[in-house]
């Protein structure tokens, strides 16, 4: 390496970083100042997939630890919500649903996905700040913090989906006309994916922002609460005036819940393809822009957290 000329203090300075290739360099890792736009390092994420797995397991396991009811809480929370909603919105406020199906079933389809979205958003958005101990001591791909939190909430969603299945079978046995459309087998996973993409995309924005601006942590509960009323949970998509539906559909969760109800409950719930496309586009845009923003601010996390 003749290019490396020793300087006055005996410190060697590389005059030409691009060497002639004498050193066998299997994976030269180059650390440089963060420079504006960089793509997400997907290869690195794949390399650390075991880490993602254990971080997700940790997030799932530590949630209900040392509680008597344990995982039962994952059922109790949506179940209680549905009971309260049924009493308040169906019996007291008498919100008319377009279908003859029982109100709890219709509302449950919405609550399930909304609570996944809300919990995933809340947990993932605070994941960087709450892991600052780790963030400032050791390097792991930072994306793993919000990603593992979102994945853990996805596990919860799967559990509560079982509850929805039980509810559907129960109502059917009770003589209600519960008949999912056959394509639900495909539509449901797609809607789960859409909800995941939307929540992760927004979480990437919020988690990166909250490192520098703690305002995010204070504002987020309001966003979640207001968002719940702007999403067709206690009412249906069809009840939104057609003229302003495209505005409401900027919220990707509208597309998710519309798709879930149309596939699982059947007519009169419709797919509204235009709304689904709009929601999907917004969700993907959130994820891509969130990933870019996250990556862009990543270099600051350890210094500012």
């Amino acid at each position: 390496m003749s290019q490396h000329a020793p300087s006055v203090d005996g410190i060697s300075t590389a005059t030409s970083p691009a060497d002639s290739g004498s050193a066998p360099a299997p994976h030269p890792l180059v650390i440089e100042p963060a420079s504006g736009w960089m793509p997400i390092d997907l290869a690195e994420l794949r390399d650390r997939s075991d880490l993602l797995l254990y971080m997700t397991i940790k997030a799932v396991k530590t949630r209900y630890v040392q509680s008597a009811l344990g995982f039962t809480w994952a059922f109790i929370q949506p179940l209680m919500t549905i009971i309260v909603f049924t009493i308040v919105f169906s019996r007291v406020a008498k919100i008319p649903m377009p279908s003859d199906l029982p109100y709890p079933l219709i509302a449950f389809c919405g609550i399930l996905f909304w609570s996944f979205f809300a919990q995933s958003l809340t947990a993932a958005s605070s994941s960087l700040v709450s892991n600052r101990e780790m963030l400032t001591k050791i390097y792991i791909p930072r994306l793993i913090f919000p990603l593992s939190q979102s994945l853990a909430k996805l596990v919860d969603l799967m559990i509560t989906l079982v509850l929805l299945g039980v509810l559907m079978v129960g109502f059917r046995i009770a003589g209600e006309p519960v008949s999912p459309r056959p394509e639900a087998v495909l539509v449901l996973p797609a809607m789960i994916l859409l909800a995941f993409v939307a929540s992760l995309g927004l979480s990437l924005w919020f988690s990166a922002l909250s490192v520098q601006y703690r305002d995010v942590a204070y504002g987020l509960p309001f966003v979640v609460q207001i968002g719940m009323y702007l999403t067709p949970i206690i009412y249906s998509t069809e009840m939104i005036p057609a003229a302003i539906r495209p505005i409401f559909a900027l919220n990707p969760m509208l597309a998710v819940i519309t798709g879930v109800r149309a596939s699982l409950l059947g007519p009169p719930f419709l797919y509204h393809p235009a709304l689904l496309v709009e929601g999907t586009v917004v969700a993907v845009a959130l994820l891509v822009s969130g990933a870019i923003f996250f990556r862009r601010s990543e270099h600051l996390f350890a210094d500012v957290a």
């Binding site: 360099a25 994976h27 890792l29 650390i31 100042p33 390097y139």
Partner: peptide, 16 residues
């Protein structure tokens, strides 16, 4: 060096 924080300028190359 452990990539917890990034440098303001300069560069590090690690082989391995």
């Amino acid at each position: 060096l452990s990539r917890v924080t990034s440098p303001s300028s300069g560069r590090v190359t690690m082989l391995g």
